[in-house]
Simulated assay, not measured.
Amino acid sequence: MPPEKPLPGDCCDGGCDPCVLDTYAEAMEHYREQLAQWLARNPGADQG
Score class of each variant (00 low, 15 high):
residue 32 R to F: 09
residue 28 M to A: 03
residue 48 G to C: 14
residue 4 E to T: 10
residue 38 W to Q: 05
residue 35 L to A: 15
residue 47 Q to P: 00
residue 26 E to D: 09
residue 42 N to R: 11
residue 3 P to H: 10
residue 19 C to L: 07
residue 8 P to R: 15
residue 39 L to N: 06
residue 24 Y to A: 05
residue 2 P to H: 10
residue 15 G to W: 04
residue 15 G to T: 11
residue 17 D to T: 09
residue 47 Q to G: 05
residue 42 N to M: 15
residue 5 K to V: 02
residue 41 R to A: 15
residue 23 T to K: 13
residue 24 Y to G: 04
residue 27 A to K: 11
residue 19 C to T: 07
residue 6 P to T: 02
residue 45 A to G: 06
residue 4 E to L: 13
residue 28 M to Q: 09
residue 18 P to L: 06
residue 22 D to P: 01
residue 45 A to D: 11
residue 36 A to G: 03
residue 4 E to S: 14
residue 28 M to G: 00
residue 43 P to V: 07
residue 2 P to F: 05
residue 31 Y to P: 01
residue 6 P to Y: 05
residue 41 R to P: 01
residue 29 E to C: 01
residue 37 Q to G: 09
residue 26 E to W: 03
residue 14 G to K: 10
residue 38 W to P: 00
residue 37 Q to T: 07
residue 44 G to S: 12
residue 32 R to T: 02
residue 25 A to P: 08
residue 8 P to G: 12
residue 33 E to K: 12
residue 5 K to P: 06
residue 46 D to G: 14
residue 12 C to A: 06
residue 47 Q to F: 14
residue 6 P to Q: 06
residue 47 Q to E: 13
residue 30 H to A: 13
residue 45 A to F: 04
residue 33 E to R: 11
residue 30 H to K: 14
residue 41 R to H: 08
residue 30 H to M: 05
residue 10 D to T: 05
residue 28 M to P: 08
residue 20 V to W: 05
residue 29 E to F: 03
residue 15 G to C: 03
residue 32 R to G: 00
residue 25 A to S: 09
residue 27 A to D: 11
residue 19 C to F: 08
residue 34 Q to H: 04
residue 31 Y to G: 00
residue 25 A to H: 03
residue 28 M to N: 00
residue 30 H to W: 02
residue 48 G to I: 14
residue 39 L to K: 11
residue 44 G to I: 06
residue 3 P to R: 05
residue 45 A to Q: 12
residue 38 W to S: 04
residue 20 V to K: 06
residue 8 P to S: 12
residue 10 D to E: 15
residue 47 Q to M: 13
residue 34 Q to Y: 01
residue 5 K to C: 10
residue 17 D to L: 08
residue 5 K to T: 07
residue 14 G to F: 02
residue 32 R to C: 04
